[in-house]
């Protein structure tokens, strides 16, 4: 039986949060997380992305991967808006610990502190951590 908040035609909409905790290169987690987000966009769920710990480096401007022979996928984050993925949160403490500010990032983000991020996480239906 459909719950009252569910649109019968579109099916249930759930709050999905993708938590990115790792540097963009060195491991494949960041790239494959982005692949999940792009596919997930087709499902018309309530999507948000979080960048914390070294994950904030995923959004750093001026990435140049030529010397390590790996594709620079940071421009893809700028395409997220076209997929209606517009809620991007970056943890303030992680930025500050790495000497970064929102101006250093390739996309506009909402900077939230640890407490605010915790509250946001508590609101989610599904948290996928990469």
């Amino acid at each position: 039986m459909a719950e009252p908040w569910e649109d019968e035609e579109q099916g249930p909409v759930r709050k999905f949060m993708y938590v990115n905790r790792r540097a963009p290169y060195g491991t494949i987690y960041a790239l494959e997380s982005l692949e999940v987000v792009l596919i997930a966009a087709a499902f018309e769920q309530d999507v948000s992305l979080v960048f914390l710990d070294d994950g904030v480096f995923q959004l750093k401007k001026g990435q140049d991967t030529a010397a390590i022979g790996v594709k620079n996928f940071s421009p893809t984050y700028r395409a997220l808006e076209g997929y209606d993925v517009e809620k991007l949160y970056v943890e303030q403490e992680s930025l500050e610990a790495r000497g970064l500010t929102a101006d250093d990032l390739v996309v506009p983000v909402q900077v939230v502190n640890q407490k605010e991020l915790g509250d946001l996480m508590a609101e989610q239906d599904v948290l996928l951590s990469f």
Partner: peptide
């Protein structure tokens, strides 16, 4: 990957 998202939608709890 759609199968992962579907699991997130259908399951009561998604465990990573």
């Amino acid at each position: 990957l759609g199968q992962l998202i579907e699991a997130g939608i259908q399951a009561d709890r998604m465990i990573v």
